[in-house]
Design a protein around this nucleic acid. Structure first.
Lengths: 220, 220
DNA sequence: CGCTAGGCGGCACTCGGTGCCATTCGCCCC
DNA sequence: GGGGCGAATGGCACCGAGTGCCGCCTAGCG
């Protein structure tokens, strides 16, 4: 994650960076660098003025990029907030694969999600800002739901394999949705309690999976 | 639910209904009647041409209504598909209130959701069409998520009261999200299995709550 | 040195959604 | 019976997101 200072600096240099042309064949690394800067600048603007009050033109201008180019980096204004959710999905799938077949889905998913949610302390402020935006702006939250659909499919497939049933059956379907929903509930709780750090987040993930494992019928 | 034949008929009479003016103080019943017709016509068009290929102008014209008026009945093109979700929420809350305080949240929610999902056989085809649209079009699905947020708040409040804790704590937060997610999983499963009727739907709801109550750690 | 490929970005367009405002019509009161 | 009154209507203009098209510019290569 790019430190905020970078974003602030970029904001104060609109004209010079405006004319910067990487031009021609842009390498993949250059591409992600630009995307990250665009992202940092955007989050900065959203935090300052609010999501709705910032137009895509603003984002493009502040990032020193044409409006048309902005949409080549992000399919949607909403997706700027969501960031590298797809990378996290890949990590999730990879971790699920490392858990031996003998373990039940709850255990497997607990491991996988603990892994995915292992944030360094330096990344926590940016994460909180991002999640706050997701929670605050309904449209962004909705878009997150769309992106999480792929996670649900992955979890359903893994669970079905471990239970020895089809992924279309009720149990893996419900389990998959429930796991992702639980994670979003964890984020909400973590976000609303002040001063939660990375360790606290992982603890909450663990608790949530405890609940999913033993069920909600018993006492807390 | 208005039978499909009505919608088809309305589609073939654009000009005459165009000039129909209820005018002046439209009663609440007239209003819902118009909304329902608009809705039926829209679902018909969506089914024929696909959601994206139908513009709001099309919907308004087919419903014999100005474009501006259309947006007075539905806040969004997406919401036409979602229908009377808010009425269902009210029913949910009402049912939750009737369950005595002694019962645990899982039992209370089971009752409430069984109640809410009690569809007459006549309504099932329309329901399936609606749900199919929600499942197929990602944007609509996302919008459904936004609308369901109110359900989650209601469930969280109820669960917190029964557990004697705050609604901001982890358990009610996770439980609320999980319950709604489970219901959406139920819909998916029910929809994808051919020939499921209202009874089958309620059976799946029951099964899902069994899972939520006893947890996913044990065997199926 | 010219060619080409590919990123860039301006331009115009579509469509969803909103504010504004004149119109129209039912209803109530005079 | 007629004149407001209030509410729904819907036309119009406008904004912002997203897309297709196309000319431009630069790096790399023959």
């Amino acid at each position: 994650m790019i430190p905020i200072s970078f974003a602030t600096r970029a904001l104060s240099v609109p004209a010079s960076s405006r004319t910067e042309h990487t031009g021609g064949v842009t390498s993949a690394t250059t591409r992600t660098v630009r995307a990250r800067r665009l992202e940092a600048v955007a989050l900065e603007l959203f935090a300052m003025r609010g999501f709705d009050a910032v137009t895509v033109d603003d984002l493009a201008a502040a990032g020193g990029v044409g409006r048309r180019t902005f949409f080549r980096y992000f399919p949607t204004k909403l997706d700027v907030v969501l960031g590298e959710l797809d990378d996290a999905l890949a990590a999730l799938v990879a971790t699920l694969r490392t858990v031996p077949a003998g373990f039940d889905p709850v255990t497997a998913c607990r491991e996988a999600f603990l892994q995915v949610n292992a944030y360094a302390d330096d990344d926590v402020p940016a994460l909180r800002r991002r999640l706050r935006l997701i929670e605050t702006v309904p449209e962004v939250s909705a878009r997150a739901g769309v992106r999480y659909a792929a996670w649900e499919r992955a979890v359903a497939a893994d669970a079905a394999a471990r239970w020895g049933c089809s992924a279309e059956e009720l149990r893996p379907q419900v389990f998959a949705r429930v796991v992702v929903a639980a994670m979003r509930g964890v984020f909400t709780t973590w976000l609303d309690a002040p001063g939660g750090d990375g360790t606290r987040l992982r603890a909450l993930v663990g608790e949530a999976f405890d609940d999913l494992g033993r069920g909600f019928a018993g006492p807390g």
